[in-house]
């Protein structure tokens, strides 16, 4: 038996919007730790890892570890039917091939339940090694989204380079080139607008912009994004979910042969 009650149901709505374009179907894993997911996109270039810790739920009951295969498109359709202020409860019985999403309005005058069919999905978990990153950039998530969107209109790939001067995002396409430099800016009064660069070594890596633009769908989840880079390693783009966990995207680089 599984019963997870999330007062801030909008978090789950935002999570689905953040991952449904990258991954079609995925297994959600439920354990005492929390509600989690790890899945690759169909071309195996990007990987998304989601964790919603059990402590973040109002009520969290998970009698035994469960893995539930879901179509993220269909799950997003169902969660779109929840109001932004609704309390969302996820329920499943042992051995059932369905999951129920219950939506309660804040004043309890409207209660809806949506039952969704589960599916069998073959998926393998990948071991993500602990890594010391050469450079970690923390910046406003809206700024990162804007940069990826703007560069995506000019080129297909972004070169991210971190130096003492700041972080530079560059692209080139048929119409020309673009470079955007963000310098460290530790706004004390508005921490959500800060750009903080921790650099052990200068690092330059190349990535496909369409994935970066897909990751930016997580922008409504967090005011800040953390980008961790090391030469010849996948970049980690992390959006923290307040009090609950995170959505982390890993993207394999493009490497000159």
């Amino acid at each position: 038996m599984l019963e997870l009650r999330l007062v801030q149901g909008s978090i789950l709505k935002k999570v689905l919007e953040a991952i449904k374009d990258l991954v079609n179907d995925a297994n959600f894993d439920c354990s005492a730790t929390g509600f989690s997911l790890q899945a690759m996109d169909s071309s195996h270039v990007a990987l998304v890892a989601l964790l919603l810790r059990s402590e973040g739920f109002e009520h969290y009951r998970c009698d035994r570890n469960l893995s539930m295969g879901m179509s993220l498109t269909n799950m997003a359709k169902m969660l779109k039917c929840a109001g932004n202020d609704d309390i969302v409860t996820i329920k499943a019985d042992d051995g059932s091939d369905t999951i129920t999403f219950m939506f309660e309005s804040p004043t309890q005058d409207k209660i809806a339940d949506f039952e969704m069919k589960l599916m069998d999905i073959d998926s393998e978990h990948l071991g993500i090694p602990e890594a010391e990153y050469e450079a970690i950039v923390r910046m406003p998530s809206s700024e990162f989204a804007r940069i990826c969107k703007d560069l995506g209109t000019i080129g297909d790939t972004v070169v991210i380079s971190v130096t003492k001067e700041g972080v530079k995002f560059s692209t080139r396409g048929d119409i020309g080139t673009a470079n955007i430099v963000c310098r460290q800016n530790t706004s004390i009064d508005k921490p959500e607008e800060a750009t903080i660069i921790e650099m052990q070594e200068p690092v330059t890596l190349t990535f496909a912009l369409r994935y970066m633009n897909s990751f930016a769908k997580a922008t409504p989840l967090a005011t800040q994004v953390t980008i961790s880079l090391s030469s010849e390693l996948p970049v980690v783009v992390e959006y923290k979910i307040a009090e609950m966990g995170y959505v982390r995207y890993y993207l394999a680089p493009k490497i000159e042969e």
Partner: peptide, 14 residues
């Protein structure tokens, strides 16, 4: 241009 690597090149299956 540079070659797009896959994530499984860096992270192994459990």
């Amino acid at each position: 241009g540079p070659k797009q690597y896959t994530i499984t090149r860096f992270f192994s299956k459990l």
